[in-house]
């Protein structure tokens, strides 16, 4: 089936209903392999078993950022091409992005408790993620506040793109702010100096999370399409009762 056919919501529904079970199965499989690898991975000599929370934290952080990228592309689709599925994709992605960002924050806090002795420090990385979380919540609030889906889609598309332009600036400012206050003595979260024996499980976990995201996103898109159809049907019903 050519990809362009998927642009039609009905075709999209038919295709995903066949495709989703396989995708879900693959997700479970990859995550199961990943978790077993993580369980057998060696503990860190400094951090002990606590390091294993990174296998959830880091993929969640990647997805938190990736999801905004996806939303930005969908926003272009909404504004430039006026594509019907672009709205749906953006709307379905926003709660998922917020959820993965929240997961990243919560795992970061749980990791920080034994490492820093407190659940939260205003570390540059964590703080940028917190601001990203706030922006996701803002997008969700805008979706919920505007009643008409296509108007809401255009408004949030603008907000998403503004966010995409601003996020690097925010990240830079927060980093500058945090290094200003805290010299490099703070333990770094993750970082590039990861031992190869930990890298394989991390990448497999990341793949599992990506599959999970795609599964959930397609399912959420289906729900959104059907929600809009229900809305249209109800409006037709109201119109019919006018006679």
């Amino acid at each position: 089936m050519p990809l362009i056919d998927l642009a039609n919501p009905t075709r999209f529904l038919a295709f995903t209903s066949r495709f989703l079970p396989w995708l879900a199965a693959a997700t479970v499989l990859v995550l199961a392999v990943g978790i077993s690898l993580v369980a057998s991975a060696p503990d860190d000599y400094q951090q002990g078993a606590t390091v294993k929370i990174m296998f959830i934290h880091v993929p969640a952080a990647w997805l938190a950022m990736g999801c905004w990228t996806l939303m930005s592309i969908a926003a272009l689709g909404t504004l430039v091409w006026r594509h019907p599925l672009a709205d749906v994709a953006a709307r379905a992605a926003a709660p998922l992005g917020a959820a993965f960002t929240a997961m990243c924050l919560i795992t970061g806090m749980l990791w920080g408790r034994p490492m820093w002795g407190t659940y939260w420090v205003w570390d540059g990385r964590l703080t940028s993620v917190l601001v990203l979380f706030l922006m996701y919540l803002g997008v969700l609030a805008l979706w919920r506040t505007v009643d008409d889906p296509s108007r809401a889609a255009r408004a949030t598309a603008v907000l998403t793109l503004v966010g995409a332009v601003n996020l690097p600036i925010i990240k830079f400012s927060v980093d500058w702010w945090s290094t200003l206050h805290q010299p490099a003595s703070v333990l770094r979260l993750g970082g590039p100096t990861i031992h190869p024996s930990l890298l394989t499980p991390l990448l497999i976990m990341a793949l599992g999370f990506l599959l999970l995201f795609i599964t959930l996103h397609l399912a959420a898109m289906r729900n959104e399409i059907m929600r809009r159809r229900v809305r249209t049907m109800l409006m037709l019903q109201a119109e019919a009762a006018g006679r």
């Binding site: 009643d147 109800l234 409006m235 019903q237 109201a238 009762a241 006018g242």
Partner: peptide
């Protein structure tokens, strides 16, 4: 008033006359 059939709909969907 002839609205019994759409009692379950949100009032937002109604026309001015409804």
């Amino acid at each position: 008033v002839g609205l019994g059939a759409i009692a379950h709909l949100p009032a937002a969907y109604l026309s001015a006359g409804q």
